[in-house]
Design a protein around this nucleic acid. Sequence first.
DNA 1: TTGAAAGCGCTAACAG
DNA 2: CTGTTAGCGCTTTCAA
Lengths: 345, 345
Amino acid sequence: MSVLTIKDVAARAGVSAKTVSRVINGEPHVRPDKRDRVLEVVRELDYRPNAFARSLSSSRSYLLALLIDDPASGYAADVQLGALMRCREKNYHLIVERVERTADWQCELSSSLRGLNLDGVILTPPLCDDDALTTLLEKAAIPFVRIAPSGAEAVSGYVRMDDASAASEITRHLIGLGHSRIGFIKGDPAHGATATRLQGFASEMARSGLTIAADLIREGDFSSRSGFVAADALLSLAERPTAIFASNDDMALGTLMAATRRGLAVPHTLAIAGFDDAPSSRVTWPQLTTIHQPKAAMAAEAVDMLADPAYRDRSADSSYRRAVDYRLVVRGSTGVGADGAPRGI
Amino acid sequence: MSVLTIKDVAARAGVSAKTVSRVINGEPHVRPDKRDRVLEVVRELDYRPNAFARSLSSSRSYLLALLIDDPASGYAADVQLGALMRCREKNYHLIVERVERTADWQCELSSSLRGLNLDGVILTPPLCDDDALTTLLEKAAIPFVRIAPSGAEAVSGYVRMDDASAASEITRHLIGLGHSRIGFIKGDPAHGATATRLQGFASEMARSGLTIAADLIREGDFSSRSGFVAADALLSLAERPTAIFASNDDMALGTLMAATRRGLAVPHTLAIAGFDDAPSSRVTWPQLTTIHQPKAAMAAEAVDMLADPAYRDRSADSSYRRAVDYRLVVRGSTGVGADGAPRGI
DNA sequence: TTGAAAGCGCTAACAG
DNA sequence: CTGTTAGCGCTTTCAA
């Protein structure tokens, strides 16, 4: 069952294999009539070039890898979707790998990726802030782009959002609603966004002349479970907050659970705000007020960078550092309609 | 910066390239001392065989593709995770592709996959029941395994669960709780599971001598939004159900939203059951009673099948048809603890 | 048990 | 503008 090769096409079209190659790759210097003839045969025979042969002889593999810490998170799903669609458009393929923090993850990952001749790697949080990982990729000379990194400007291209401003904006929204005792639930310390979001919250509180009681800031790890625990502690305070800003949606859902279990009306007795606009932010009643982060668009930009041949040499160029816009999404967990019922649906 | 090749290793170890190849691939007929020496050099040089060269000359690519209809769903995420981990174990790579129902998806998909020399493809619902797709793969001679297909036994290997029995079991649970007016929300008609789950529900109702009023069965499409709409209609019935069985968790969440919005106490006034044990089934209060489906394990089995060289020729063997066990998970949306509060956390 | 030779299907480099 | 010649790095044959 030998497969159709470039030679078959060449023979049929009455040209050399190289000419077929030129046509397929859109190279110039082919006479229009020959080009047309080749394309015709390609269609006729339904020929597809073998990706392996192609990348063995050229330097490009048309293969990107998406490295993910927690593939089950809604965040990862959105990023993946964005990358997937852009890869499809550009005729790239996407290999997804989970990076587990086992004893020798570096070795495993390295052996996994190095044989692959990848055109590039996309790093999602918190991997984008892992020095060991970025060093590894640099050593292996594999181009990479970071999504939502928190520091290390010059390391590589990246796509990020201004988390601090976004956190400030959602805080301002809560303050504008009349809240002054606002609880805050922090995320996983391994994520750069954890510090940035807290900072955005704190600076906005300060700007509004509000002080933050120390016991209103709680630890979390971005899981809904941790949000539940933190919120439960906040809600059992003698003087409990009238609003809680959980620094991602999963923890905001945990907060909503804790409130519902105690029979507190949301948003009337307790307002809740999240961050990320995860799919799950829309599956509760009330729905969550949150910050929309264009995760899919960010991933698509990352693909664009890696697909750009110039990126390989100029990955630290400022043109490969992009900031995308966020958007405050006000829903029922903080908002009330004219009828006094939570906004939504 | 030419990369390390098998020749470098051969030279260093004082053997031929072929011997190195034998060692790497675990072939027999190599003297132990030579084998050890080669392995030593491999470690020393940190050599990784080039995956492209390997698959160009052999028939295997160590590449599997996971085809997904809706990558944003919790279902897809779980399946992907399971496949990912098993691939890692077996030194396979996983390419994820979204299959969009555009005009010429077949052509796109075909060109996307055919050049890749895939060792196999994993089909998730509802793609596993798409005849056009399975035919396409058969024609291209690409082995595939279906996850949770609803029919076509002989088409390929598969891993499935007994959805009908599971639906019966959860229905029995509701009946055992004293419910007799039970609403049912159907899923997307394109999914085979939609019919099977309804059938399991209906047969258990019949077995218990209960009749199902026609207006208690509602259409949905597996989205939480559709669950909300269907549940809202059920709850506005003059004689509303005391329990609702939504045939997946997303729709059960929509049901919970509708109930909460109306101020109905769950599970006291309305019991809710879902199906799938999606991550989101645990982020509400109360948490959802559901059927646990071992999605990750199913995906892992699929990988095992495709990695088995014998599968290529005997994909229809009965040994490649597996059924996995489900498990009823009772949580707060139907269960009440000793204190009268919903079970959970 | 080992190695030499001959490709896998494609593209880079060079001629024409 | 077009074709020829060499490989890319590995595995397959087959002979030793």
